[in-house]
Design a protein around this nucleic acid. Structure first.
Length: 580
RNA sequence: GCGCCCGUAGCUCAGCAGGAUAGAGCACAGGUUUCCUAAACCUGGGGUCACAGGUUCGAAUCCUGUCGGGCGCGCCA
């Protein structure tokens, strides 16, 4: 039950009724009309701006329109009072009867409470992480990984058909470097002294296992062969093992993407060639020259004619090369083919989670989708994640690109646990930089939001356990007498819960899962306040042995609050703990 | 030079889809425990929402410009 959607509907009905009576013009655009919780609780439970927004198109004074609407709304079920305030707000004070209905609904919805059909089953693709398969994930991948995963879950909960995807860059020069690095480790595994790893190759120890696997599988036979003979099999093996490593890293964060899409496959199936033909046929490809790049000019820059995609026709800043000087495809060319593949699979939203340093990609990705699907047919949404700065006891953690001096994703997860990593990565909006202090995020105090929210869930679980051992159990949605919950602290919790479905929809539309974290913090805060109030006002305690029905009702109330917390946490991918 | 992101309390940040008197935590000052987890709660002070225009009944929020900070602008991937 989404109270605000419900009352938005009532406002629409009231307007239709007024139109039928000839008091208001029909066919007004209601897209700007909102029914929302007022910031100030003294303004009531639901507030609508309808009269102000519609005054002009209706050709009426806001007050006059508000007056008419107000009368209709005041007569609606569950509305105790409707009043006009400020410049034309209509504030609805709900009848106490609404809250028991709401709680009963939340309680019966259980783990579905808050979910909606907003997305109407629209197909959405969320691509995230997509790190090069040349080594384990490092801490920089953490944020995008968690963000993408939570966003996918959020969209799933709000009625979209989501595919979680990882694009494997297994076709470029970097995987050849990987293969050469693995080949050295292969020789090492065969007993050769390889000395220092030459500059330009990957020095990490994680390739030793690849060398050993190669030695075991192929024996010494590659050592006598030229690179052209061993490169391919070594590369395949190395990529496969790196992807296993990466999948393990992601699994440690409870991330399991469904599709791992190979860039190389786009070449072998001819999809890239096919895509360029299609683009060409549509007239988006031409031979031409590009201006010298601004900023730092590459050393090997040469002015020459090349095959270009006319992305400027779709809002990009410059046209993009499709072929390199040696005639092979650019990375961009396979990217276009990949976009095309996604579009042909029927996705209406292509969502990309990228690091902030990829800001320059946004326009070209949008241009590609417009060129292939047609303008406005497919929505390309890019969310950029800013850097995470690591701290240890207030001191920044130094990292160098040199061997062994970067912090891996696994290091962080192993040290503080997946729940802490996930919550903290989402306790900041994605485009803001984030400080991550190992000491602070594991602290067991209210200064630590992960703990604070988990603690609320654990406290509820604790009371439910105690109640059960004393012979109480949560009343069913039908039997609970939620009308007994009338204290301001109880109502504060209920009102907060009522905002949850609307919050999830807004977060989904804005592609901002961090809103859930902040919501959960607020909900936990309301709950802790209610808990403590019971210390001074014993009649507010959850378990009151002499009042069986009230206690069972409060247990049902707690169960409903717990679903709110657990459902929010589950979208974030954080385990709701039962005790701490 | 151009593009994108950011600028809100002393600090770290929210601000929901343009709404009413801009919020929270930290820090600071004070209070609450014979009682379901005090690992918590309550009370208090603290603001030129970077700046200047514009749109609007209404702007921290949308548009333009300026200043300050970050990132990007390669036939790399």
């Amino acid at each position: 039950m989404n109270l605000f959607a419900h009352f938005h509907g009532l406002v629409e009905q009231a307007l239709q009724a007024l139109a039928a009576e000839g008091l208001v013009p029909g066919g007004l655009d209601l897209s700007r009309v909102v029914a929302e919780p007022p910031r100030d609780p003294s303004h009531g439970d639901v507030s609508t701006n309808a009269a102000m927004v519609l005054a002009k198109p209706a050709g009426m004074a806001p007050k006059a329109l508000a007056d008419l609407l107000c009368k209709k709304l005041a007569a609606a079920p569950d509305v105790a009072a409707a009043e006009i305030a400020g410049p034309g707000f209509i504030n609805l004070r709900l009848a106490p009867s609404i809250w028991p209905k709401f709680l009963a609904s939340a309680l019966s919805l259980k783990e579905k409470f808050g979910h909606s059909t907003l997305g109407r089953g629209e197909k959405v693709n969320v691509e995230y992480v997509s790190a090069n398969p040349t080594g384990p994930l490092h801490v920089g991948h953490c944020r995008g990984a968690v963000f993408g995963d939570a966003l996918a879950a959020l969209l799933g909960a709000t009625g979209y058909a989501v595919s979680k995807e990882y694009y494997i860059n297994d076709a470029g020069a970097q995987v050849d470097t990987l293969a050469r690095s693995a080949f050295l480790r292969y020789k090492e595994a065969l007993g050769e002294n390889i000395g220092e790893i030459p500059a330009g190759l990957y020095p990490g120890d994680y390739l030793k296992a690849v060398g050993e696997a190669l030695a075991k599988e192929f024996g010494p036979r590659f050592t006598a062969l030229p690179e052209s003979e061993w490169l391919e099999p070594v590369r395949s093996k190395a990529i496969a093992m790196m992807m296993d490593l990466i999948r393990d890293d992601l699994a440690a964060l409870n991330i399991r993407q469904e599709v791992f899409f190979s860039e190389r496959s786009l070449h072998t199936t001819g999809a890239v060639a096919e895509t360029l033909t299609a683009l060409s046929t549509a007239g988006h490809v031409y031979q031409g020259r590009l201006d010298k790049p601004k900023g730092e000019v590459p050393e090997d820059w040469e002015d020459r004619e090349q095959t270009l995609f006319r992305s400027t026709a779709f809002g990009d800043d410059v046209d993009r090369p499709l072929l390199k000087s040696d005639g092979s495809y650019t990375y961009f060319a396979s990217d276009v083919a990949y976009s095309r593949d996604k579009i042909m699979r029927g996705f209406k939203q292509l969502i990309y989670i990228l690091g902030a340093d990829h800001g320059g990609y946004v326009k070209r990705l949008q241009a590609v989708a417009s060129a292939i699907a047609g303008e406005g047919k497919v929505q390309v949404i890019v969310r950029l994640c800013q850097l995470v700065k690591l701290f240890r006891n207030g001191e920044p953690v130094r990292m160098s690109k040199r061997a062994g001096e970067f912090v891996t994703l696994r290091d962080v997860v192993d040290e503080v646990g997946p729940d802490v990593v996930r919550f903290m990565m989402l306790y900041r909006k994605n485009e803001a930089p984030l400080d991550f202090d190992f000491a602070k995020v594991t602290e067991q105090s209210k200064d630590n939001p992960v703990f604070y929210v988990q603690y609320a869930h654990a406290r509820i679980s604790s009371v439910l356990r105690n109640a059960e051992s004393e012979g109480f159990k949560p009343a069913s949605p039908e039997d609970a007498e939620f009308n007994l919950l009338t204290d301001e602290a109880e109502l504060a919790v209920i009102r907060r819960m009522a905002a949850f479905p609307r919050l999830l929809e807004a977060a989904a539309l804005a592609h901002e899962p961090h809103r859930i974290s902040f919501y959960l913090y607020d909900l936990a805060s309301d709950f802790h306040a209610l808990w403590n109030k019971g210390k001074e006002a014993p009649h507010l305690r959850f378990i009151i042995p002499a009042q069986r029905q009230l206690t069972n009702t409060r247990m049902a109330f707690l169960a409903a609050i717990r679903y709110s917390l657990a459902n929010g946490l589950s979208i974030l991918g954080v385990t709701p703990v039962e005790e701490m």
